[in-house]
Design a protein around this nucleic acid. Sequence first.
DNA 1: ACAGTTCCATCCAAAATTCCGATATGATTC
DNA 2: GAATCATATCGGAATTTTGGATGGAACTGT
Lengths: 305, 305
Amino acid sequence: MELSLRQIRYFTAAARCGQISRAAREVNISQSAITAAIKQLEDIVGCALFRRHANGVKLTHNGTIFLQHANRILATVDEAVRAPLNSQSNLAGRLRLAMTYTVAGYFLPAYLERFSRAYPNIQLQPLEATRSEIEVGLVARAYDIAVLLTSNIADQERLAYETLIRSQRRLWVSTSHELLDRDEIHLSDLLREPYIMLTVDEAANSAQRYWNRAGSRPNTFTRTSSVEAVRSMVASGMGITILSDMVYRPWSLEGLRVEAVSLASVVPTMDVGLAWAVNADLSDPARAFADFLRTTLANERQGNS
Amino acid sequence: MELSLRQIRYFTAAARCGQISRAAREVNISQSAITAAIKQLEDIVGCALFRRHANGVKLTHNGTIFLQHANRILATVDEAVRAPLNSQSNLAGRLRLAMTYTVAGYFLPAYLERFSRAYPNIQLQPLEATRSEIEVGLVARAYDIAVLLTSNIADQERLAYETLIRSQRRLWVSTSHELLDRDEIHLSDLLREPYIMLTVDEAANSAQRYWNRAGSRPNTFTRTSSVEAVRSMVASGMGITILSDMVYRPWSLEGLRVEAVSLASVVPTMDVGLAWAVNADLSDPARAFADFLRTTLANERQGNS
DNA sequence: ACAGTTCCATCCAAAATTCCGATATGATTC
DNA sequence: GAATCATATCGGAATTTTGGATGGAACTGT
């Protein structure tokens, strides 16, 4: 049996809903059809994609990996169907695009590839830098435009910015953690838990800000600049952390599960967006890039709702 | 009607074969099935993908654009099916990867994305540079490894290299060009044609080399560093050129067709491959990257044959 | 302990899609 | 102008997909 898009569509619906029956309602189809499609998929890839429970289905490790591929497939298909309409542009030029670490690793890559396909004549120079370097670089016109965490922007006078997406920050714990049993979790409940601090993109500063507001501070167990290291440590029960959904993945590289739960306390979202120098006219490529990101993200929001 | 992978598979087969009936034989299916699938596709995307002729079918402008998307879809699907097997690696480190212009624009992007997904913990730093800069940089350990045109490598003493693919060089002309009517075309037939010289990646040097060997030189009409500009000029009949299949696309940005024909004279292939400093042990990330490229390319060759 | 509910797996007949083979049609070649 | 090679079309057959009924397992609340 060969893979079909129908299977992929049903699979992603099931993964989105967490229940086969709910997915069936969403897709306006019978539950047995989805069950069958998923079974076919599992035959094809040769491993289980869901673990079945009484109250729904949960992705396995391989399942989450496959889900990412599945979403990728649907994105490429979507793009292909639209392709002849919004044809390539021959806008030419150079685009020096600055970005911070997490943006570069967990948000932009998929969009960059699409952008450079839509504008093959724009020479794209992606440059990773720290927030402060980017601020200086934008003002000095070393970069045309940047994608970064807009809530951290310091130089509000000489920089203009625009938030594109807000990603919720949630608590990450291991599957077996006792906190999962509680109805509500407040920041104050976390005081004695060993906290793993991520040190990239000023995550530590952001954390400090909302911990201060709550009048306390986390019991920092260790610090690391690797998101994957954080994931592994949380999964193996060494500690907890609070990070945004943008970097959340339910499985660590070793195949251990990480749970993310919303907090009852107010924790600000992580805001990702564009920034540029107010005193500089945006170059055509930069303007094209900004428009591209805006419309692409708007489309996705609509598609997934 | 919704898009299906079957349609995509049949479409790419037809595009590959240039004939619906031959594609049918290749896929072991009836000719009418492919005709129907293509018709459905054209309904979905809302425009013609092929122009039908007495001796086969030819992609339209939109068709070639869609073909690229179609191949992308199949590549992502292929990858998805393999996904759970070759799971991600947690090999960490930094990979400073140097590459030349054409490689960066027309060859590597798709592989880079896949690589960084397979090795999420390797911090990939792609750096575009000229061949000579790369040679110096490799020896000085400023780059870990490079992808470039191996036939141009000068410092054969301190650099090791390995050719990964050979891309044939062919003559590009406009659709209406009289040269197309000939049975055989030799370099000497091109002497009075206005020649458009591409000036990136030492293309001019390479060209000079094989023109010299033929004891003549092209009537250079203009020089440009933009491949897309070359394409447009050739398509609009301003001149001809000889470039490798790696950068060939049958349609210019304006929607004019470019034909590529093999020459009777011997023209060397364009060889793309890896290079590294002989006196340096390859870092683990560099080794992983080299292996990744080798196996991925080997798979593709097998798949397309 | 026990209904009641919700969820997924399975089975089978009905519905829809896809496929085949024959045929029609049009262009090119000799 | 007959032969050849290509794509388009059509109806019946084969295959795939679907829907609804049924059963079992797990959770919920009494």
